[in-house]
């Protein structure tokens, strides 16, 4: 991927609709131009990534270049989704950022253990959250080099 390529899609898994709105707005205010796809729980996230269920038709679910996972989600929580992602032969190359409100050592250990790329606590202060979003967009969307698009390389 060339520098400045803005076709990196971001998948956000978040169950709280307020949080969804806040996050969307934060990314907007941070001028992150990457497309944000939202799923409402762990199951939907997996359906999206694996092109099953309501996302069987892959067109609605392009492969993201970055996944943001909220840890506390119903049905299947963020850590379980992480596990599935990092053990899937094609999904494991996608960087995953875990999002949480309250820091719990157990979660942090598990997440890094399963291979997440980053772990971020969502600040209460919205403005601070905006700068976090900005950094995320800058770092993962622009500075970071993505895994090659050529899927045939993925084993």
């Amino acid at each position: 991927m060339a520098l400045g390529n803005n076709t990196v899609n971001i998948l956000l898994a978040e169950d709280n609709p307020d949080d969804v709105e806040i996050t969307k707005r934060a990314f907007q205010q941070a001028k992150v131009i990457n497309r944000l796809y939202i799923v409402r729980d762990g199951k939907e996230a997996l359906d999206f990534l694996l092109h099953q269920g309501e996302y069987e038709d892959g067109l609605k679910a392009p492969a993201p270049g970055l996944i943001l996972l909220d840890i506390n989600m119903p049905k299947i929580n963020g850590i379980e989704v992480l596990k599935t992602i990092k053990t899937d032969k094609s999904l494991k190359y996608i960087p995953v950022i875990m999002l949480t409100i309250s820091r719990k050592d157990e979660d942090i250990i598990k997440s890094y253990g399963l291979g997440c790329n980053s772990f971020i606590q969502k600040p209460v202060d919205f403005d601070k959250f905006v700068s976090v979003a900005k950094e995320i967009g800058l770092y993962w969307g622009i500075f970071n080099t993505q895994f090659p698009e050529d899927r045939s390389l993925r084993k």
């Binding site: 409100i101 309250s102 969502k122 600040p123 209460v124 959250f129």
Partner: peptide
């Protein structure tokens, strides 16, 4: 407690901000 209290707090702050 901390988690469940902070969540709505974030929303309160954020929406007031908006």
């Amino acid at each position: 407690v901390s988690h469940d209290l902070k969540e709505p707090l974030r929303a309160i702050y954020a929406f007031a901000r908006f």
